[in-house]
Simulated scan of single mutants.
Amino acid sequence: MSTPDGTTVLAAGCVLWRRSPVTGGTELCLVHRPKYDDWSHPKGKLKPGEDALAGALREVAEETGHTAAPGPELPTVRYPADGRPKQVRYWAAEAVSGTFVPNDEVDRVLWLAPDAARARLTRPRDRALVDALLATARLP
């Protein structure tokens, strides 16, 4: 979806987290997209007229199989994509329930401690979101 002037691609996603079932610490969910061979936070383009937070939660469900409870909004990320500006709004979100099933868009997910997630993320702009999550959300 683009803005009325037809230039900016609008998308939304979440920095998805959970309490580790092993250590009790915070783990972040990263998705692997085979099309790009990258590790990122779950996100995607908004449908026409879709609320950004609703779109972010839909993308989390589609890409990770998890329902999520949204928390604070994180910084918006802007970058060029396919020759057009793209704007992605992000929220912190706690994974509530669900199970990952590989699909065409996402073939793997990893749950990692914040430092390991930061190191695994492909793009620096995604790493900054880990820091924003840790600074804003009340995590275990």
Rank of each mutant, 00 (worst) to 15 (best):
M1I: 10
S2H: 15
T3H: 11
T3D: 13
P4M: 13
P4V: 08
G6A: 09
T8P: 07
V9A: 10
V9C: 08
L10I: 15
L10W: 00
L10H: 10
L10C: 07
A11K: 09
A11F: 04
A12L: 08
A12N: 05
G13P: 05
L16T: 00
W17H: 15
R18H: 11
R18V: 12
R19N: 06
R19S: 13
R19F: 12
S20D: 12
S20E: 07
S20A: 10
T23I: 10
T23E: 03
G24I: 08
G24M: 08
G25F: 05
G25Y: 02
T26M: 01
T26F: 01
E27A: 09
E27V: 05
E27P: 01
C29S: 06
C29H: 09
C29P: 00
H32G: 03
H32S: 04
R33F: 15
P34V: 07
P34Q: 07
D37T: 10
D37H: 15
W39S: 04
P42K: 15
L46A: 05
K47S: 14
G49T: 04
D51M: 09
D51G: 08
A52G: 03
A52Y: 12
A54G: 05
A56L: 03
E59F: 00
V60P: 00
V60T: 14
V60W: 00
A61G: 01
E62K: 13
E63A: 08
E63C: 11
T64I: 02
T64R: 02
H66E: 02
H66V: 15
T67K: 00
A68M: 04
A68H: 00
P72A: 15
E73D: 09
E73P: 12
T76H: 03
T76C: 14
T76M: 12
V77Q: 07
V77H: 02
Y79M: 13
Y79L: 15
P80W: 02
G83F: 10
G83T: 10
R84Q: 13
K86P: 04
Y90H: 05
A93I: 04
E94T: 04
A95Q: 02
T99I: 00
F100M: 08
V101S: 13
P102A: 12
N103K: 09
D104E: 15
D104R: 14
D104A: 15
E105P: 02
D107H: 09
R108Q: 15
W111S: 05
W111M: 09
W111V: 10
L112S: 05
A113F: 00
P114M: 04
A116H: 02
A116R: 04
A117R: 00
A117C: 06
R118N: 01
R120C: 03
R120Y: 00
L121Y: 12
R125C: 01
R127E: 06
R127T: 11
A128S: 11
A128I: 01
A132C: 10
A132L: 09
A132Y: 04
A132Q: 06
A132R: 07
L134N: 07
L134I: 08
A135V: 03
A135L: 13
A137Q: 01
R138V: 10
